[in-house]
Write a protein that binds this DNA or RNA. Structure first.
Lengths: 151, 151
DNA sequence: TTTTCTGCAAATGCTTTGCATGGGA
DNA sequence: TCCCATGCAAAGCATTTGCAGAAAA
């Protein structure tokens, strides 16, 4: 991890922690662990993956607690949920705001491409449909570099 | 429904039917009903909604058959599945190719906004991430016109 | 001490699957 | 007639929920 990544991760962690504290939610070891993992994760983990990581630190942790913590953070707009119909949602605690993704349809890797903002597009869409747009989701599905090699 | 809509719907229906025939799938009344509904639908129905419509014609139809037919059409790229994590996928048989949607977060209405193609964006993303992009999904979530009124 | 959180287990709800029967071609 | 498709019921599975005990404040 690059130095600025660990810095960003730490900032995110503190931001989430402060938010929980300021809203009088209790700071438990399990919540701290989930916060740290979500703040640091670059790979859009599943609930199960977060669960496994928390378990190495707190073996008694239950999956239900992971889901409850994620739901709490979702409600506070501190985690972005990428929902998939095949039952394996992914979570992004590093960038909890709507942004585009590229998703490998073979290995399920998810990355964030750097592209221009979609704000103008959002305004245009809102005008044409009469919708008041709150958030969006833009996913490109395909094969990542590695998966193109061994086909 | 405008005349050109019913024309388009009819064309889609025939296209799907021809495809099933040419691939030696059996033409059953249930499949015909699902095809007709999907070809005509402008509202991105759920499997359940398709099921209810088919039932008015063939009361013995089962939900499993609806899902099997949808799966068949998905495999033939004749229906687009919009997957949602809360367990209520939506289907588009009128425009079975990836395209943007606006989705009301209150009443769940889904509409197709008319916007420019995302092809240039797709190429740019592919170049920057090393992905070979196969398809995409762009959803704008917000409140539709009616839902803005009665809040 | 009080209130919230955790962890277990059971429930939920959409979707899929297995299998015997029925119906296209 | 020969398979494929249907329909029923059961299974799957990520996620949610209820509740009693544990732990934060």
């Amino acid at each position: 991890m690059a130095p600025d990544d660990s810095r960003r991760s730490e900032d995110r962690f503190k931001h989430m922690l402060d938010k929980l504290k300021s809203l009088d939610f209790r700071i438990t070891p399990q919540r701290l662990a989930v916060l740290r993992i979500l703040a640091a994760s670059e790979d859009h983990p599943t609930a199960e993956q977060i669960f496994e990581k928390v378990r190495t630190e707190f073996p008694t942790t239950s999956l239900a607690t992971i889901y409850k913590t994620i739901a709490l953070l979702k409600g506070l707009n501190e985690v972005l949920e990428l929902g998939f119909p095949d039952g394996s949602n992914r979570y992004d605690g590093a960038k909890p705001f709507p942004h585009p993704h590229v998703i490998c349809i073979r290995c399920r890797k998810i990355m964030d491409p750097y592209i221009i903002s979609l704000d103008e597009l959002k305004d245009e869409i809102g005008k044409k449909t009469g919708f008041r747009i709150h958030y969006h989701r833009l996913d490109f599905f395909g094969l990542c570099g590695e998966c193109q090699k061994d086909l």
